[in-house]
């Protein structure tokens, strides 16, 4: 029983890791708390859904076009809306700006797809795999594997490639990065786009295991915020810690208190961490933002 809960939590945690990584990158590196992240994630899910329905693209393959579309959108949003806002106002104006973008995205999705819940029923959705004593749906395993693979790819990109290193340098020391000829603003925009693309992939994967709707955007932002707070910012491994913790807490909570409290449990854990461990689970100060 405990094993099954843990296994389920881990699977869920994989998805949360990916979802949290995008948000955490946008926050930690581009310096933006993106309240439109939920909208971007659900938009990714809708893109995958429509590709599946209209042109029968394999649901797992549709991650790729969803990621490309959301990268471009994220990049453009940063360049044309967020950057000018950062330049003229305090952090809170930027926060409101992301919320305004969320409203526009939500309205767009409501108009195109309405507020009904959708789900992608993939060809392998009936199959289960036996792991020790627990039955796990194959789709969840695949999703977990893809999530972890994506997270690892992002890690490789950030630590091994030239643009990845430039992005990191821009976050750590913008002045220094400028001196060595890095276009810091461009890096922030690219990073923001990558964050949005990660969110879209996570959304597309999510659409394979649970039903989704525009209504979900708020609670998704809540989740990624919890993950970011638990794990620390701009750090993929922090997102993994936060994501898996949240996955385990939720899957345990679902069994013991009931799934209707899922969201509240996450938020309570977050508030507790903020208050009791202001340095985060792995030690980063929150109050000098």
């Amino acid at each position: 029983m405990i094993f099954e809960i843990a296994l389920n939590g881990l699977m869920l945690g994989g998805l949360y890791t990916l979802m949290g990584a995008g948000f955490s990158l946008q926050w930690g590196i581009s310096g933006i708390i993106n309240l439109a992240y939920g909208g971007m994630t659900v938009l990714g899910a809708f893109v995958a859904f429509s590709l599946f329905r209209l042109v029968s693209v394999q649901p797992l393959v549709s991650c790729i076009p969803a990621a490309i579309i959301m990268f471009s959108l994220g990049w453009a949003i940063y360049k044309f809306f967020l950057r000018p806002t950062i330049r003229r106002g305090t952090f809170f104006v930027t926060l409101i700006m992301t919320f305004a973008i969320e409203l526009v995205l939500e309205n767009f999705m409501l108009y195109v797809w309405a507020s009904d819940y959708r789900i992608i029923t993939s060809p392998y959705s009936g199959i289960s795999v036996q792991i020790l004593h627990a039955e796990v749906p194959l789709i969840k395993l695949i999703m977990f594997a893809i999530s972890i693979a994506c997270v690892y790819l992002v890690h490789l990109f950030m630590s091994k490639t030239k643009p990845g290193k430039a992005i990191q340098a821009s976050a750590l020391n913008p002045q220094g990065a400028r001196v060595v000829g890095i276009d810091v603003e461009k890096m922030y925009a690219i990073n923001f786009g990558i964050g949005a693309a990660i969110g879209a992939v996570a959304g597309a994967l999510m659409s394979n295991i649970t039903s989704f709707s525009v209504v979900l955007t708020g609670s998704l932002v809540g989740k990624v915020f919890v993950i970011a707070v638990l794990g620390g910012l701009g750090n993929i491994w922090g997102a993994a810690l936060g994501g898996i913790t949240l996955g385990l807490v939720e899957s345990y909570g679902t069994i013991t208190i009931g799934s209707e409290y899922n969201e509240a449990i996450g938020l309570v854990v977050m508030v507790l961490v903020l208050v009791l461990r202001p340095r985060g689970l792995i030690g980063r100060k929150y109050w000098d933002v």
Binding site: I33, F91, L267, L274, V289
Partner: peptide, 18 residues
């Protein structure tokens, strides 16, 4: 209220959600 900036803003959202 010990938290500053974004953290305070979003902690209150968490409080509301809970």
């Amino acid at each position: 209220l010990r938290l500053r900036g974004h953290y305070f803003a979003v902690a209150t959202v968490g409080l509301n959600g809970a």
